[in-house]
Design a protein around this nucleic acid. Structure first.
Lengths: 210, 210
DNA sequence: AGCATCTTGGACCGATCAGTCAAAGATAGT
DNA sequence: ACTATCTTTGACTGATCGGTCCAAGATGCT
C-alpha cells in the first residue's frame, strides 16, 4: 500500500523526538522509532534518512518548539528581567510536569551524552545552549548591570534550567523543582539589585551619575 | 597464565568506572571495559559479574570516592555554611578541571539516563543524590533558617552541582562554571541572611527574641 | 488504460552486543 | 611431585543493532 505518504511527517517526527528525548541517542533503536510512529524501516529511512539525520532533525524540531516557548516567555515581560527569568524557567517546569511528554530535556540529555555523540551533534547541542544563553542575556539587558554580570547570570540561568531536567529524571518532585527555580530567581533579582546599587542606577528613574 | 589474580581489582574497577562515567551505561560495552582494563571477558565476568553488577559496583565506588570528598568539604567549615557550600561545589569544579578523569559526573550521567536503567540502578542513583542532599542540609543546619528554607537550599545546591556536570559536557569553560558556582553561593548566603533577619536571629550572638 | 514513480513492509546483511564456556596455564596445599 | 582449584584467553552463541534492498501495491500523469 502506498503511492502517496500514508502518515503525517510532522507527527512522526514528534514521536521520534520523544524517543530520543526519553531514551537518549544510544538507547533509541530504529525499532523503537518504528513502534513509536507505527512506521516500517522503509518509511523511516525514506523520510528521515539515517539515525544521525533523524537525530539532527529531532534536535531542530525540539529547538524550534521549545525555543519559541522560551523566547516568548523571555520577551513577555519587557523591562522586568526577573519576571522574564521566572517565565523562562516556568516553561521547563510546565514541560516537566506535562505527562504527555517525557521528563527531562532533550538538550540536557544530549549534552550529558556529548562525548559519545558525533561531533556534528555535539556542536548542534552547544549551539542550542548558546542560543538559549543569548536569549536570556538579552532579556536581562534592560537592567543596569555590567556586561560581565549579565553574562554570568545568563549562564547561571541556563545551568539551573539544565539542572531541573536532570533532577526531574531522578524523580525530584515538581514542588522541589519549583523551589529551585524560585531560588534562582531571587539570585537574579539580588544580583541585579546589587549591580544597580553599585553603579548608582536604580530600577526606576532616579538620581543619575551626572 | 593464572592461578592467582594477575591484576589489581580496585584499579580495574576505577577504569571501569571511568568508562561508565565517560560513555554512560548504554554506550559502555564489555569490550570497552576490556580495552580500558586490559582484561579479557573471563576476568571481567569472573571478578565483577554481569554488566549490571559492575555498574552497581562502579556507582558504589564513585559514591565512596567523591562522597568522602564532598563530606570532607562540607564539614571542613563548621559554622560557616556558605564556605561549606563553596568547598562542596569546588570538589566538583576541581574534578571537572582534572584531565585525568572524565568531565561531568557519573551520577548526573546516570540520572539523565534513568528511564533506560534498571529500577535497581535508578533507586541507587536517587539514594546517592539524597545522601548528598542530606549532607548539604546538615552543613546548613548551623544557620538559623527554618526547616523549609534549609531543605530548599540543600536541593538547590544539589541542582547546581548537577548542572555543572551537564554544562561541562557541553564544553562550558571552567571560568563560566566557577561563576555559576559563585552565584549559587551568593544565593545560599543571601537566603540564609534573609532567614536570619526575619526570625530575629543573627549569624553571631546578639539580641534574641526574649 | 498503461506506465513511470513513489511508498510500504519486511526480509536480509554484516557488525556488535552481553554473556557463556572450555581448554590451557599457573598456583597452593599436601 | 601430584592434584584440586583458580585465572585467563579467546572462541562461541543468540539477540539486537543500523542500514539496505526489493517485491508488492498505490498513485498521478498522459
Amino acid at each position: 500500500m502506498s503511492g502517496r505518504k500514508q502518515f503525517d511527517v510532522g507527527a512522526a517526527l514528534d514521536q521520534a523526538m520523544r524517543v530520543f528525548w526519553q531514551r537518549g541517542y544510544a538507547d533509541a533503536s530504529i525499532d523503537a522509532f518504528g513502534s513509536a510512529t507505527g512506521l516500517g524501516r522503509g518509511s523511516l529511512y525514506g523520510t528521515f534518512g539515517t539515525k544521525d539525520a533523524l537525530f539532527r532533525q529531532c534536535l531542530d524540531r525540539y529547538a524550534s518548539i521549545y525555543g519559541a516557548q522560551y523566547a516568548q516567555a523571555l520577551t513577555a515581560h519587557p523591562g522586568e528581567p526577573v519576571r522574564a527569568v521566572e517565565a523562562f524557567l516556568d516553561v521547563t517546569l510546565s514541560r516537566i510536569a506535562d505527562p504527555s511528554v517525557p521528563a527531562g530535556c532533550l538538550i540536557a540529555q544530549s549534552a550529558a551524552q556529548a562525548p559519545t555523540l558525533k561531533e556534528e551533534h555535539s556542536i548542534q547541542v552547544r549551539a542550542l545552549l548558546d542560543t538559549q544563553r543569548q536569549r536570556i542575556r538579552a532579556a536581562l539587558e534592560d537592567s543596569s548591570a555590567d556586561t560581565r554580570t549579565l553574562d554570568e547570570l545568563a549562564t547561571f540561568v541556563v545551568a539551573v534550567n539544565q539542572s531541573l531536567a536532570v533532577l526531574s529524571r531522578a524523580g525530584t518532585s515538581d514542588a522541589e523543582l519549583r523551589s529551585v527555580a524560585r531560588l534562582a530567581c531571587t539570585t537574579v533579582a539580588d544580583t541585579l539589585a546589587r549591580a544597580a546599587s553599585k553603579d548608582g542606577t536604580h530600577d526606576f528613574p532616579g538620581p543619575s551619575m551626572l
